[in-house]
Design a protein around this nucleic acid. Structure first.
Length: 844
DNA sequence: GAGAATGAAAG
DNA sequence: CTTTCATTCTC
């Protein structure tokens, strides 16, 4: 049913309604495609990967379908016209309105918003207008060919029946020169001539491509986007006005010069737009050179070297594991990591295993959770040891424990474990593991997911209203969540992302993946998370301390990395290794060869894979060092997209979900690559969106009070008058009570009486976290504005090459999905402060 | 899905 | 001048 609908014209609307549509837009899709073309080599490799993926995907047809569907819809179509000032305002303030008038339906809220808008100080209005314009410009730059809307009628019917008539027409009509068919289409069938047509964002090359793109952007003059350039040249004012433009200019034109100061201030929006565009036009790049170029890369390489050892270990493990606990393998995840080290010495392992078992039994009473974890550890160890007897024992123990925990069932445990796995930094692994374990059906049905989301939303909103039962369930999870949140916060404060991811990721994924079973799962995972976190925390302490004490310098990073390589600690994420581990046996077979390849390549600094791996290492390092904080905005985005896009069908492809799906499909070692392609696309759009969001968040948010005063006198329209009179009145009342004058500018946290303490707590916590670690979330409008340029980002960018930054960002995007909802465990709005809207969307 | 608002863009 | 569509989300 859906499929048909999607295809139909209205599908777009439906999508919108669905919310997922939001993120779908990859305006530069075509550009990416070109990139792909440029980097045909990688493409080939990826293709292979794809095949593998497909095979794997077979299991879950739904996933694949989703992807395909997504393809059909084509990102270009998705590209949405930028919001105008009023819409921005609405988006920014709707949540406020809703808070004040929870009962009010959206329409009414819109009316109120309109009223506010009407009375809004022109000066303030101008901010929104400017923002809208800025974003529009950026958007247009990103999508040179983009047309606002097709004419009312024409597009729909006549043109291209194959694709949604409506979308196609307006997507990139003007690009006659380029003629980029919708990327997806092209890839599948049409335009054999155009190689890029083949490029499917989904399938497209990985970070390397992105990297290349970035390099190009930096290195190459603005050959690419003529139109954009023209625009820029034409409107110098814009540049002056908006850092975005400046940045765009810089990146496009000179690029090479780092011009850190300016760039720093400039917004990533244009950057990415430029990059994408440039890349598209530019020819292939030389990865090797790049490697040499960036210090960042070198650093990554160093990291890689350390990791390489680990990888080998993981291989060994796999080989051994062929026996039994496949799932367990997946589950092992983190513990494995640690264990790996131990593993080297079997004797030690055995001893430890034995030791731990009895110990946990004793502990049981006191700390069940811990035991559980330990148990897992034991399982892992056993597996490694390959001793069937021990495994059995473990099982028994597990059973016992299960008895202790009514909630935990075997299946549940497995799932939980999986969730844990994701908690590690290996995002790649998670999705896949989830996919495998979970029912494909669930994935297939986006609708259900939607419902779920809705429900969750309902719950959150309607705590007052209804669903005591649901609430209860959630509450359990929520409590645990809170703990986790706290941990997360702490972790964040310390700069350790991994932990945070742990908490968040599992949750989200679990939910998403397990539409039906979610409730049970939800309840469980949090506990585990907490424990795992605790454990990690303790273990990581040493590392953490190190991090804390040290500033995020290159040197420090490198040092830490080296150390990490030596130390088994979980802090450093081993992207490749964990992934491999996570792979199920079936996959492992395929993966192994790849791994070996990777390994070899890794050894070779110049190879792309090595680059990737290096990137991964780098990413880890950066993460550990907390340098990615600024990039974290992606998380928000991810949440958003995930929330909306969870359905995963068509639009999903660009979303995290799609991403996740792909990963799941992907075979082990290559996950990175595959992920990357989407990431790229995502990255571009994501970055743009991210920047946009930042800016958006920086926009001032006004308290109802502000409007109340003005509001009364100004009745805008006759029609509404009736409503207006009544509603505005309400507003005034509510605002008066809740809002103090000092709060004229709304900060992040709204003291809503309606909301429950939990939510508040969650909100506040996340806020704090973000605030502390990342400036991104601009809680204070003023501060936000100041930040609009995003101090951190610029700093980072200045430090690293743009390309490197982009890579990292891409990586983070990958992670996004998993960690996406750090705070949102319950589906409650956590990050109210920055983007209320985001929150609403984000919660599944 | 419709609808509530505003506004930009295209016909 | 009219029509789309961008945002959000209830009904």
């Amino acid at each position: 049913m859906k499929g048909s609908n999607r295809n139909k014209d209205h599908s777009a609307e439906g999508e919108r309604a669905g919310k997922r549509p939001k993120r779908k837009c990859l305006q530069w899709h075509p550009l990416l495609a070109k990139k792909l073309l440029d980097f045909s080599e990688e493409e080939e490799e990826e293709d292979e990967e794809e095949d593998i993926d497909k095979v794997q995907l077979l299991g879950a047809d739904g996933l694949e379908q989703d992807v395909g569907e997504t393809d059909d819809e084509s990102p270009e179509q998705r590209a949405r016209r930028p919001m105008n000032a009023f819409l921005l305002f609405c988006k920014r303030h709707r949540s406020l309105v809703r808070q004040e008038h929870p009962r009010l339906d959206n329409r009414s809220a819109t009316k109120i918003l309109a009223d506010w808008w009407a009375v809004l100080d022109p000066k303030e209005k101008q901010k929104y207008t400017d923002m809208a314009k800025e974003y529009k410009d950026a958007f247009m730059k990103a999508n040179p060919g983009y047309k606002w809307c097709p004419t009312t009628n024409k597009p729909v019917k006549s043109p291209t029946p194959t694709v949604n008539p409506r979308k196609k027409p307006w997507a990139f009509p003007s690009d006659s020169s380029r003629d980029l068919p919708s990327p997806k289409k092209a890839k599948t069938e049409e335009m054999p001539q155009l190689n890029f047509g083949m490029a499917d964002p989904t399938q497209m090359g990985g970070l390397s491509m992105l990297l290349l793109a970035g390099e190009h952007a930096l290195g190459t003059p603005e050959i690419s986007s003529g139109s954009c350039r023209q625009d820029v040249s034409e409107s110098p004012e814009l540049r002056q006005k908006s850092p975005l433009f400046q940045f765009a200019e810089i990146s496009s034109s000179s690029s090479h010069s780092d011009t850190p100061s300016k760039q720093c201030q400039a917004s990533a929006l244009f950057q990415f737009a430029e990059i994408s565009s440039n890349t598209s036009q530019l020819g292939g790049a030389e990865p090797v050179k790049r490697c040499g170029k960036s210090a960042l890369f070198q650093l990554a390489e160093m990291c890689l070297a350390s990791e390489g050892v680990k990888m080998e270990d993981s291989k060994l493990i796999k080989a051994k594991e062929s026996d039994g606990g496949r799932i367990k393998e997946l589950e092992k995840g983190k513990e494995q990591r640690e264990i790996k080290m131990e593993k080297t010495d079997d004797a030690r392992l055995q001893k430890e295993a034995e030791f731990e078992k009895p110990a946990k039994e004793n502990v049981r009473d006191s700390k069940e959770l811990r035991n559980f974890e330990e148990l897992r550890m034991d399982d892992i160890m056993d597996i490694k040891m390959e001793d069937p007897k021990e495994i059995r024992k473990e099982e028994l123990e597990e059973d016992q424990q299960c008895s202790h925990f009514p909630d935990f069932s075997y299946s549940a445990s497995s799932k939980i474990i999986i969730s844990d796995v994701p908690s590690r930094k290996d995002h790649m692994c998670h999705p896949r593991g989830i996919m495998i374990i979970e029912d494909p059906t669930a994935l297939n049905k986006p609708e259900k997911l939607k419902k779920k989301k809705k429900k969750s939303k309902m719950d959150r909103h309607g705590n007052d209203k209804s669903t005591p039962k649901k609430t209860c369930k959630k509450r359990q999870s929520s409590e645990s969540d809170i703990e986790s949140v706290i941990y997360t916060i702490e972790a964040v404060a310390k700069g350790d992302w991994g932990i945070e991811k742990l908490g968040e990721t599992p949750r989200k994924k679990v939910r998403t993946s397990s539409s039906g079973k979610g409730s049970i799962l939800d309840a469980k995972p949090p506990k585990k998370k907490v424990k795992s976190r605790e454990k990690k925390m303790s273990k990581e302490k040493s590392s953490d301390t190190t991090k804390e004490s040290r500033p995020p310098d290159f040197i420090s990073i490198s040092a830490s990395k080296n150390i990490s390589g030596e130390v088994p600690e979980g802090i450093k994420a081993e992207p490749l290794t964990p992934t491999e581990e996570a792979l199920p046996p079936s996959l492992s077979g395929q993966a192994k060869p790849e791994e070996s390849d990777c390994h070899r390549k890794i050894e070779t600094c110049g190879s792309r894979k090595s680059e990737r791996s290096c990137k991964g290492a780098l990413y880890k390092t950066l993460v550990s060092e907390g340098m990615l904080t600024s990039l974290r905005a992606n998380v928000d985005r991810g949440k958003r997209s995930s929330g909306k896009g969870n359905s995963s069908d068509h639009e999903g492809c660009w979303n995290e979900e799609s991403w996740t799906f792909n990963q799941s499909g992907t075979s082990g070692s290559k996950k990175f690559k595959k992920t990357k392609p989407k990431e790229d696309s995502l990255l571009g759009s994501a970055k743009l969106d991210e920047e946009f969001e930042k800016k958006f968040n920086s926009l001032p948010q006004y308290s109802p009070v502000t409007f109340d005063r003005k509001c009364v006198p100004v009745p805008r329209k006759k029609k509404k008058t009736g409503n207006m009179s009544s509603e505005p009145t309400k507003t005034s009342k509510g605002s008066g009570d809740k809002w103090s004058n000092k709060q004229l500018f709304l900060d992040a946290i709204h003291p809503t009486e309606d909301e429950k303490p939990k939510e508040q707590l969650l909100r506040s916590l996340p806020k704090v976290t973000e605030t502390g670690c990342h400036d991104e979330g601009s809680h204070n409008p003023e501060a936000a504005e100041t930040r609009s340029s995003t101090p951190e980002m610029p700093a980072v960018s200045a430090f690293f090459s743009l390309a490197a930054l982009a890579e990292v960002a891409a990586m983070e995007n990958v992670h996004r999905g998993q960690r996406s909802t750090p705070l949102t465990h319950d589906g409650q709005p956590k990050e109210m402060p920055q983007a209320p809207v985001l929150i609403s969307c984000a919660d599944q």
